[in-house]
């Protein structure tokens, strides 16, 4: 009589995590940066139709990396949950925390249930408050873990490099232009070189607390991006990188944040 192979729970979970992680790492990064008037999302995404960053509710937005069909499903579920909650109670009763909880439960259950393939996605749920202290950024991983992020956060492909770049240069209270330049420079940064991403290949959206409408989410159109970033020339943070030491990737010298 044949005995089924024994797989330890640790190994099972590790395999599932590796599977999900591999799928996520294939995609490009999404960067979220807090700035003076709200929260900015930026991603390299040449598609004008398949969004990685979307509106969920008045003050809540969603960003995702990984498999499109899976995070699109989660996004639609989030919109449905938020609209239903806002319709049955009040618009103010829809919170980012509630949504992040629902996503965490969903991802966690799917990850640990044997029957379903784990979702290969990572999500940001961000909510903009009346002032900077009220801003919330939640980062959700494929296994349902929730982390509360402050200032900036990165998910997707080259997370460590981009996070390192932001860690050195991010400061509180940036204005929109500076935050955008920083986010785009971070997306183009890799260990070997700094690329300049064309404005047409960027997807940028903000939750702007100064917007007079109830819905604080807005996308920055290409024309606006060109106006802020310039058409093609590299942006200041990229040029602050000394050109002398490109060869050694891992020991980046500590560089002062850009003055601009």
């Amino acid at each position: 009589m044949s005995t089924p192979f024994y797989v330890s729970p640790e190994q099972l979970m590790k395999d599932r995590a590796d599977f999900a992680r591999k799928g996520i790492a294939r995609g490009r990064s999404v960067v979220v940066v807090q700035y003076a008037d709200g929260v900015l999302f930026a991603s390299e995404n040449p598609s004008q139709a398949l969004h990685k960053v979307s509106e969920i509710y008045d003050r809540i937005a969603f960003a995702a990396v990984g498999r499109y069909n899976e995070f699109e499903n989660l996004r639609i579920a989030g919109v449905r949950l938020a609209d239903m909650r806002g319709y049955s109670y009040d618009r103010r009763d829809v919170t980012g925390r509630g949504l992040a909880n629902a996503y965490a439960q969903t991802l966690g259950t799917i990850f640990s249930s044997g029957g379903e393939k784990p979702y290969e996605v990572e999500l940001f749920v961000a909510e903009v408050g009346d002032d900077a202290t009220g801003d919330q950024i939640y980062r959700l991983t494929y296994d349902g873990q929730v982390a509360d992020e402050h200032g900036y956060a990165v998910m997707g492909g080259a997370t460590e490099t981009v996070t390192g770049y932001l860690a050195e240069r991010y400061e509180d209270g940036l204005d929109l232009d500076a935050a955008l330049r920083l986010a785009v420079a971070a997306l183009g940064h890799s260990d070997s070189d700094d690329r300049v991403i064309a404005p047409g290949d960027l997807e940028v959206a903000v939750l702007d607390r100064t917007r007079s409408r109830q819905r604080k989410f807005s996308r920055l159109a290409e024309a606006r991006l060109v106006a802020i970033l310039g058409a093609t020339p590299p942006t200041p943070p990229a040029s602050a990188e000394p050109s002398a030491a490109p060869a050694s990737p891992d020991d980046d010298p500590p560089i002062a944040p850009p003055v601009s």
């Binding site: 989660l74 579920a77 109670y89 909880n101 629902a102 996503y103 439960q105 966690g108």
Partner: peptide, 16 residues
Amino acid sequence: GELTGHGRLPAAFLSP
């Protein structure tokens, strides 16, 4: 249950 925010999103929410 769907509104109080406990538990995973119901299948109907995730269905296209």
